[in-house]
Design a binder for these strands. Sequence first.
DNA 1: CGTGTAAGGAATTCTGACACG
DNA 2: CGTGTAAGGAATTCTGACACG
Lengths: 107, 107
Amino acid sequence: MTQEDPSLKERKVISIGTVRDLTGLSERQIRYYEERKLIFPARSGSGIRKYSFSDVERLMEIANQMEEGVQTHEIRREWKKKEKENENWKKQMLKGQIQAHFKQNRN
Amino acid sequence: MTQEDPSLKERKVISIGTVRDLTGLSERQIRYYEERKLIFPARSGSGIRKYSFSDVERLMEIANQMEEGVQTHEIRREWKKKEKENENWKKQMLKGQIQAHFKQNRN
DNA sequence: CGTGTAAGGAATTCTGACACG
DNA sequence: CGTGTAAGGAATTCTGACACG
């Protein structure tokens, strides 16, 4: 109904204590993963970290990787890789769209 | 992906300061509307109020009503009324489903 | 490297109350 | 009735550091 929904999952509104409860991680761990550039909370005016549901999901993925013994460094590397692949995929899709468009016009 | 999504909007994870920022209402107002049974935050173990995105939406509707000069009492009354109507509507739908089912079986 | 913890301070939240109207 | 505010206390969060390994 109210149209501001699209990004509910991305809104940074959850503070670290709640994230702790949601993920089962310690605050120390959550802050550390930020230090290692795995997670990027927003900050309230007074400097308090605010997380989104997306961030919470991400933290749970990180927790899984860590359990498997993967180092934060590796997690970050893999993440960036997938990010790049995703971008390329989007580019290809766009290309396809454009070609399809011209094809249609020629018929 | 992670299957716990359905209720993202209902998860009580936002504390009152953030709700204040999101709605523009004062904390006093937010607590008062709770006192008047218009909103029902959860409580953390230590007694801190936690709101959902749904609650935030609701608060914005309340704010609109209040601006129009409607009393909390009236808002509550109207709300309960709509709730009841909604329940009846669901019952009717269910009835329809059942009838359709039997009809199909007879053919 | 990843995480626990004690330390000190700042910001948040809570309740009950007085105020105005 | 609806809301502001000062009051005192409890819970939360923050950072930088020491510890272990």
